[in-house]
């Protein structure tokens, strides 16, 4: 096996993540925890967009619902984090399932706008449902406690995030290689063809939306615990752009790519602190540059250039194309 093959690099990354808190200062630990949370978001979104091919813009909203759900259940009902957190994720999953309903009839840009409209609606609810969401000013969440474990809040949350990333990463890897994953790809590559192969569109679209909602919800719960503060502006369209950028930069249709994309994006955003005043310009340029010069994302680049990066699902294809490349046939599907 190649020294810099996929498995070795992933193991090295994991080991690094496991020991990182021993030598990182508070700032870098915060950045590292942010990366872990974004990894979850990117994996969920990649399943929906990269595998199932649904051009949805509601991920930031579901991230917000997870964060609000987790935070509000603690604040209003005095529930412990450990109960509120899974419930928050569950609520986000439900919302994900609900938005899959219009997705059945819509595709491409129409789906994009209807999910964008949903995201705007969610923002509006956060802002206006004041008795519940505390409106525009946001609210503080109670600090999470790891008692009886002898571990500080920051470290505990970091390792909780790391464990969840490991579990959900493995889950996603298995999912996309299963029957379900192949059904998603079939839906992406041609809905009518998929249906004729016996793929139940309703079921699989709903499943894809539900899964991405679940991942976003988990990420949201962790995010609220990390910040101890939840407010609407954390879940706006800039957040959406970051999510989309992560999966494009990492590589569509790849779980490992999502991990790399999330890490890269958070790193870029923090590194851009150096170029004060022109961050927006630099961010835009980097985004365009990645899309132009690494059309398959980081993962596409690695698959091509580095031995040991081929993913089992794609090994046979060895294509240079990005996974969802719109061929001339499928361009007609765009409305």
């Amino acid at each position: 096996m190649a020294l810099f093959g996929r498995r070795n690099v992933l193991v090295a990354m994991l080991l690094f993540a496991a020991v990182a808190p021993t030598f990182l200062n508070a700032y870098y630990l915060f950045v590292a925890n942010t990366i872990l949370i974004y990894v979850l978001l990117a994996i969920g979104l990649n399943i929906l967009v990269g595998y199932a091919g649904q051009l949805a813009f509601a991920n930031a909203a579901m991230f917000g619902i997870g964060a609000y759900g987790t935070g509000l259940l603690q604040v209003h009902f005095g529930w412990p984090f450990w109960l509120a957190f899974p419930l928050g994720a569950l609520i986000a999953t439900m919302v994900g399932l609900a938005i899959s309903l219009p997705a059945l009839r819509l595709s491409g840009l129409y789906l994009a706008l209807s999910t964008l409209a949903f995201a705007q609606f969610t923002q509006w609810v956060f802002l206006n449902w004041e008795p519940v969401t505390f409106g525009a000013g946001g609210f503080k969440t109670p600090p999470i406690s790891f008692a009886p474990l002898p571990i500080s809040k920051t470290l505990g949350l970091y390792y909780l995030s790391l464990i969840l990333v490991m579990v959900l990463f493995a889950l996603a890897q298995n999912l996309v290689r299963s029957r379900i994953g192949r059904a998603f790809v079939a839906v992406r590559d041609g809905e009518i063809a998929a249906e004729s192969l016996g793929v139940d569109l309703l079921r699989y679209k709903a499943l894809a939306f539900g899964i991405s909602g679940f991942y976003a919800g988990i990420a949201g719960g962790l995010y609220s615990a990390m910040l101890n503060f939840v407010s609407p502006e954390g879940f706006d369209l800039f957040q959406m752009v970051i999510h989309k950028a992560m999966i494009i930069v990492g590589g569509l249709g790849s779980i490992v790519g999502s991990v790399l994309g999330a890490g890269t994006l958070v790193f870029v955003l923090e590194a851009l602190r150096k170029v004060k005043g022109v961050q927006e310009i630099a961010f835009g340029a980097i985004l365009v540059g990645f899309i132009l010069f690494m059309p398959g994302g980081i993962i596409g680049y690695l698959k091509e250039k580095v031995r040991g990066w081929e993913e089992p699902l794609h090994r046979a294809r060895a294509s240079r194309r990005p996974p969802v490349a719109a061929t001339s046939e499928s361009s007609e599907v765009r409305p």
Partner: peptide, 8 residues
């Protein structure tokens, strides 16, 4: 490229 890349 796919439409998401274009949009982005």
């Amino acid at each position: 490229a796919n439409i998401i890349s274009l949009v982005l």
